[in-house]
Design a protein around this nucleic acid. Structure first.
Lengths: 138, 138
DNA sequence: ACCCTACCTTAGACAGAGTCCAATTCAACA
DNA sequence: TGTTGAATTGGACTCTGTCTAAGGTAGGGT
């Protein structure tokens, strides 16, 4: 993820301590945290970081295409630092945990031209839903 | 949708004026409204209906499987009264409009057992994204 | 090395979506 | 028609996220 910092500097990003810790948190585990979880983890490294800064930084990373925003339920969005390989998501309906999965087959091919209603279709997202092992045990 | 009311009565639902107008709104156009839009339309028919009742009623309809909850962005959930035929959604990234589509092929088959991480997978949602004809013209 | 200054961060107020609660009302059955 | 438990209500509350004005600072220029 020092790659990430290098790429951002190239694009004229000012490298502040706050942005560094947010990047560091995203780089850590390959988990999909909510903004508040990212804030909590960033605050463990840099106690005075504010919620607003975390939101700002995440928004910028999304705009730059370095991070993906995922909203699988109506609750908090989650942030996915894995933009290098195309993947889909497997979501626990109980606790909201997300795992990356790589289904086989061409996902786009199922949608015939007559089903597109004149839309310019640019992408497709697949969300598999169920219960994670922990939640399935009650 | 008088079918719906009949089904609900069979299941021991108390038929109140409030529930009737919510059902009536869902039955109207086959559009995917937000809870607040449903509340506004219900209030046009029954002015004193409260927001809480609309949320309660929608939640019950979802639990009973009569309506589907759809959250395509991080904003308000939308409610889809079309549960009698399996379908997926085509969403305009600009205006949020949703169309029902019927892709061909078995959507579930792409996910191999080794990709399930011990989850009990119960369903799959596909969201095609793009621009509707109106938004594509700017 | 140290100024500038434009850009970044901050706290807290605000807004949108949804939930919860105690008090009140009312549908359905006897 | 009376009874009763379920449904409704409005307002307070929570959670997520955005905005703003004031102060701080990274990094290029000198």
């Amino acid at each position: 993820m020092s790659d990430l910092l290098a790429r951002l500097r190239e694009r004229g990003w000012r490298l502040t301590a706050q942005r560094r810790v947010v990047a560091q948190v995203l780089d850590g585990d390959h988990v999909h945290y909510t903004a508040d979880e990212i804030h909590a983890r960033a605050a463990a490294l840099l106690p005075e970081i504010s919620r607003a800064t975390v939101y700002n930084t995440l928004g910028e990373l999304v705009t730059l295409g370095e991070v993906l925003e995922v909203s699988t339920d109506g609750r908090a969005k989650r942030y996915d630092p894995n933009t290098h390989d195309a993947h889909q998501h497997l979501v626990c309906d109980s606790c909201g945990t997300i795992r990356d999965v790589h289904p086989s087959g061409d996902l786009m091919s199922g949608l015939s031209a007559s089903e597109r209603f004149g839309f310019t279709v640019s992408g497709v997202e697949v969300t598999y839903r169920g219960l994670c092992p922990t939640c399935a045990r009650h």
